[in-house]
C-alpha cells in the first residue's frame, strides 16, 4: 500500500466519519444504528495506520495486494450494513403493523362509544 493511497484513504475515512458524526449531531442517525458505521471507520483507520494487520489478513486469505484487501474489507462492511438494514426494516415493519392494528382497534372503540353516547340523546329528542 503506497503512502499516497494511505493518505487518500485517510482523507476518505475522515470524511466518512465526519458525515456520520454530522448526521448524529443533527439527530438524523441514531447512535444504535451508527455503531456499525463507526466500527467500519475504526477498522479502516487501523488498516491505514497499521498496514501490517491488514497484511496479516491478506496473507491468511492469500490476497496478494493490500489494496485488494481494502476492497474486500469494504465489501464485507457493505454486506454487514445491508444485512443490519434488512433486520431494522423488518423490526420496524412489525412495529408499524402493531401500530396500525392498535389504531384501527381504537378507532372502532371510539366509534362504538360515540354511537352509544349519541343514542340516549336521540331518544330524548323524540
Amino acid at each position: 500500500m503506497t503512502l499516497e493511497f494511505r493518505v487518500w484513504l485517510t482523507l476518505g475515512t475522515c470524511f466518512y466519519l465526519f458525515l456520520i458524526i454530522f448526521l448524529m449531531r443533527k439527530n438524523r442517525m441514531m447512535l444504535k444504528y451508527s455503531l456499525i458505521w463507526l466500527g467500519s471507520a475504526f477498522i479502516m483507520f487501523v488498516s491505514i495506520l497499521f498496514p501490517q494487520v491488514l497484511q496479516w489478513v491478506c496473507n491468511i486469505l492469500q490476497i496478494q495486494s493490500l489494496v485488494n484487501g481494502v476492497f474486500l474489507l469494504q465489501g464485507i462492511f457493505a454486506l454487514l450494513i445491508l444485512v443490519s438494514l434488512s433486520s431494522i426494516v423488518s423490526v420496524q415493519s412489525a412495529h408499524i403493523r402493531k401500530l396500525v392494528q392498535t389504531q384501527a382497534l381504537l378507532e372502532k372503540r371510539v366509534r362504538d362509544l360515540e354511537e352509544k353516547a349519541a343514542k340516549p340523546s336521540d331518544s330524548e329528542e323524540e
Partner: peptide, 20 residues
C-alpha cells in the same frame, strides 16, 4: 367494521380480527 389506515395484507388484517 374496523378500518386499517395502512394496507397490511391478509395476514395483518386477519390478525387484527384475532386481536379484537
Amino acid at each position: 367494521h374496523l378500518s386499517l389506515p395502512v394496507n397490511l395484507g391478509i395476514g395483518g388484517g386477519v390478525q387484527t380480527g384475532y386481536l379484537y
